[in-house]
């Protein structure tokens, strides 16, 4: 196992993208970076630039306009990458299922690795989702036994 693979698993950099979310999950994603939950102690850093990121955290359902942006961001993240759909509406469309401008969950556009339930998802659940994604990532880069 090379040093790059090891650091990818030990210190994943996440990028958060908000689709047409209601903000609830976004604020919880931000809250998990702040003192009470503090994911930085696991080496998780929030990034603004897709080319720096290993994990894409997506909140909210996909609408017709964000579908293109989301695809674009996903393509810019270097391999291997993980996608986490945070919240009920990112997973399935949730409460917005009958809104006219909604395509559905994130898996309509991207392959999703981890689904985090909840509306809004709690910070504990989000951290749990990131940890699950890391286990998957370590298999992908060949670190896992």
């Amino acid at each position: 196992m090379g040093i790059i693979q090891k650091s990818q698993v030990k210190s994943p950099w996440i990028m958060h993208f908000c689709n047409s979310s209601c903000n609830g999950c976004d604020i919880e994603v931000l809250a998990s970076l702040t003192p009470l939950y503090d994911v930085e102690r696991f080496g998780i850093v929030n990034m603004g630039n897709p080319k720096h990121a290993d994990v894409l955290v997506v909140t909210g359902p996909v609408n017709y306009r964000t579908a293109r942006v989301l695809k674009n961001l996903y393509d810019q993240i270097p391999d291997p990458k993980m996608v986490i759909a945070v919240g009920a509406c990112a997973s399935t469309g949730g409460v917005f299922h009958n809104c006219y401008n909604i395509l559905g969950g994130v898996d309509k556009v991207l392959p999703v690795d981890v689904y985090v339930p909840g509306c809004a998802a709690r910070p504990e659940a989000i951290i749990d989702g990131v940890v699950l994604a890391l286990q998957k990532l370590s298999k992908a880069v060949g670190v896992a036994k």
């Binding site: 689709n19 909210g60 359902p61 609408n63 964000t66 917005f96 009958n98 809104c99 006219y100 401008n101």
Partner: peptide, 23 residues
Amino acid sequence: LGYGHRGIEKACELNEYPKNIHL
């Protein structure tokens, strides 16, 4: 704008009124 548009006003007309609270 338009990145966050869902169409909640229309969906509010489709749902029964007590269910709209959650929407």
